[in-house]
């Protein structure tokens, strides 16, 4: 077990934590944050697996994928936030209509 495997396992942990928050919370801002935490977990797994084999230079392909992924995640987050603000302007609340209020 080397350190990059530890990072990859931490990435799995982040992904699972994010998924839990995504399901449990009804506030849309929390859901957006949860998706970002999940994405960070996936990026951590990819970067860690790129440098998994000790003694060799890290694989550049996952790193390039993560750079691409970060920019896509940022723009998707911006769109999600804009949608949430629009929903609040239309309905006055930041949760999806069919969900009971709570949490």
């Amino acid at each position: 077990m080397n350190s990059s495997l530890l990072y990859a396992l931490a990435g799995v942990g982040l992904f699972t934590l994010g998924l839990y928050a995504l399901i449990v919370h009804t506030h849309l801002l929390r859901k957006i944050l949860a998706i970002n935490v999940m994405g960070s977990g996936v990026f951590l797994v990819l970067v860690a697996l790129g440098g998994r084999i000790p003694g060799t230079p890290p694989d550049p392909v996952p790193h390039a994928m993560v750079i691409t992924g970060i920019v896509v995640a940022v723009s998707a987050t911006a769109l999600a936030l804009a949608l949430m603000l629009r929903l609040r302007a239309e309905t006055g609340q930041e949760r999806l209509p069919e969900e009971p209020s709570g949490y």
Binding site: V71, V72, S75, A76, A78, L79, A82, L83
Partner: peptide, 9 residues
């Protein structure tokens, strides 16, 4: 994707 996200916003 960046451009489409901006168009969406």
């Amino acid at each position: 994707v960046l451009l489409v996200a901006l168009l969406g916003v």
